[in-house]
Write a protein that binds this DNA or RNA. Structure first.
Lengths: 111, 111
DNA sequence: GCTCGTTATATTTGATCGTATATAACGGCT
DNA sequence: AGCCGTTATATACGATCAAATATAACGAGC
């Protein structure tokens, strides 16, 4: 059964969508970019690039990082990071609700 | 100013989003896959592949084609093609309306 | 029956994207 | 002081994506 997914498109072609949002969530859960990347099944470099671009698009860093220390370091969401995550989930929920009858109708159109 | 875009994700990984929908519109306007592809700035092959996959995902062809004849042939949307276009536009409109306040709030969060 | 633009399909070329790998700095902990 | 996992970054390799090119069939109109 098909499901709606959405993205926020910026003027320069950059986008924030389910992938970057899920990564932010994993980083918040696991406490580092690298473990978040592992949880997402992607390379650290890719995760770092995604986090970096998310911050660039929003005009504010979405994670605060620290290198070194007992466990090597880590990362946590900045307030801006937490906000974009919450807002994106709110948009998803609202959009899914209003789209549901249309999707149901679309499915009934054919098989 | 960022804008919302959405896609319908199917279980097998296939998606229907703004690109395929815009292509269908161009085909309807211009009367052929190839002229629709030109209007979208893409190759005929890519346009054909997109049309084909859209039909596959929906379980019904979205264009009816004919080769040969005075103007070489052409294509027009099937009822299924017209329906998915209308429904997608309806979903977009409804989603944009409910998402707008959230996006405004997100913009106010930073710059 | 020849032409012309289209559909339909295969193959090659090139660009883009992501992984893998390497390297350096960092800093609590033992 | 040394260790370890992390951040941050660069480079090389592979895979995937899309364009470009090529080919054949089609059929109304001249």
């Amino acid at each position: 059964m098909p499901v709606l997914s959405l993205r926020i498109d910026f003027e320069d072609g950059g986008r924030i969508g389910p992938g970057k949002i899920a990564l932010l969530e994993k980083i918040a859960e696991t406490g580092s970019i690298s473990s978040g990347a592992r949880a997402m099944g992607m390379s650290y470099k890719r995760a770092w690039d995604l986090v970096d671009e998310t911050g660039r698009l929003l005009g504010a860093p979405v994670v605060e990082t620290r290198a070194g220390g007992a466990r090597g370091g880590g990362a946590q969401l900045t307030p801006a990071g937490e906000r974009v995550l919450e807002r994106f989930r709110a948009i998803e929920e609202a959009a899914a609700k209003v789209a549901e009858p249309h999707i149901d109708a679309m499915l009934k159109d054919n098989g």
